[in-house]
């Protein structure tokens, strides 16, 4: 059989398939669309045949294009949208965190150790904290939590409105999460550095407030959004470490496959962490700075911590997991 005959024999069915794919991609209703898989398989068969018989570039390339676009059309899946997101947040994400419990404790340690180190050392030797915060950091801490001021007025001055504060927290904090995750690709080092630095920075901020400002204002401000925000940082560190570890310690897979598989797991962790941080930003922007009796703040904060921990521990739990 010559290429010409081959093209004459099968051309009409290729043409039908081409037309169908074009219409399906334009999301138009297509007549006889149930024939598409059959035509696609026939085209794949023809492509193999044309490749084997070396029927020349024009035919092979036409069939190659047809096979690629046909595959794309047939393999198209609807992503599931909001329902899928809900399922991820209520099941997959807490499960993924629990499945990596050792990594969770490790990242928590990396974050909390410098935090408490600064908290403990500052009463004896405030130099460390001061150099960590820098002059500007100290001024803004005093502006927010010093005697006779409150965070709301300071932040209002800085960002204008609750909404402005919320937007700033989203922009700043979620970006930090995503960078923590990305830094994990450098063998986990990037994530560790960001975790350590954030632990040290938060620790020195808290220590400086204890040392020089009004601690009650500070703790009233941070207690409400602290749980999702701090755990969000730790979990984005986990996501980065998952990525880094699958490169450093690929286990049974080759490095590339391990990275792809690790990336999928890490993606669930970082999406969850980013959403937790975004949630924290809502609280931080619209609730935390609102002046209220301290006991209300502390009760709310306690509830938030309990709820966040319960969410991570219990959500999407399977029976056998107990």
């Amino acid at each position: 059989m010559t290429p010409k005959q081959f093209e004459n024999d099968h051309g009409p069915s290729w043409q039908r398939l081409e037309g169908m794919i074009e219409q399906v991609e334009k999301a138009k209703p297509v007549a006889n669309v149930d024939e598409l898989p059959k035509l696609f398989r026939q085209a794949c068969h023809d492509l193999s045949l044309a490749q084997h018989r070396m029927f020349g570039r024009a035919i092979v390339e036409r069939l190659n294009t047809l096979a690629i676009s046909g595959f794309r059309v047939l393999e198209r899946r609807s992503s599931g949208g909001w329902e899928r997101l809900w399922q991820m947040m209520m099941q997959d994400f807490p499960r993924a965190v629990r499945a990596e419990s050792r990594l969770f404790w490790f990242c928590s340690a990396v974050f909390w150790l410098p935090f408490f180190a600064f908290l403990i050392i500052t009463p004896f030797d405030p130099e460390w904290t001061m150099s960590m915060l820098g002059t500007e950091g100290m001024i803004s801490m005093e502006g927010m939590y010093g005697e006779g001021t409150n965070p709301r007025e300071y932040m209002r001055g800085e960002y204008g409105s609750d909404f402005g504060m919320f937007a700033f927290y989203i922009w700043n904090n979620v970006s930090i999460n995503l960078r923590t995750f990305a830094g994990g690709l450098l063998g986990g080092v990037g994530s560790l550095v960001i975790l350590l630095f954030n632990g040290a920075y938060f620790g020195s901020a808290a220590a400086y407030v204890n040392h020089a400002c009004n601690p009650e204002t500070f703790y009233c401000f941070v207690i409400g959004h602290g749980a999702p925000e701090l755990l969000g940082i730790v979990i984005s560190g986990m996501a980065g470490m998952r990525l880094g570890l699958s490169f450093v310690k690929p286990g049974a897979y080759d490095r590339k496959t391990a990275l792809v598989l690790g990336g999928r797991k890490a993606m669930i962790l970082i999406t969850g962490a980013a959403l937790m941080t975004a949630f924290a930003a809502i609280i931080e922007g619209f609730w935390s700075a609102t002046p209220m009796e301290p006991w209300i703040k502390y009760t709310f904060g306690g509830c938030m911590w309990t709820a966040t921990i319960c969410y991570l521990l219990l959500c999407g739990r399977e029976r056998h997991e107990a």
Partner: peptide, 14 residues
Amino acid sequence: GEEVGNGLLMLAMF
């Protein structure tokens, strides 16, 4: 108002 505007811009940048 300028404050909300700045917030919107920051969100859009993000």
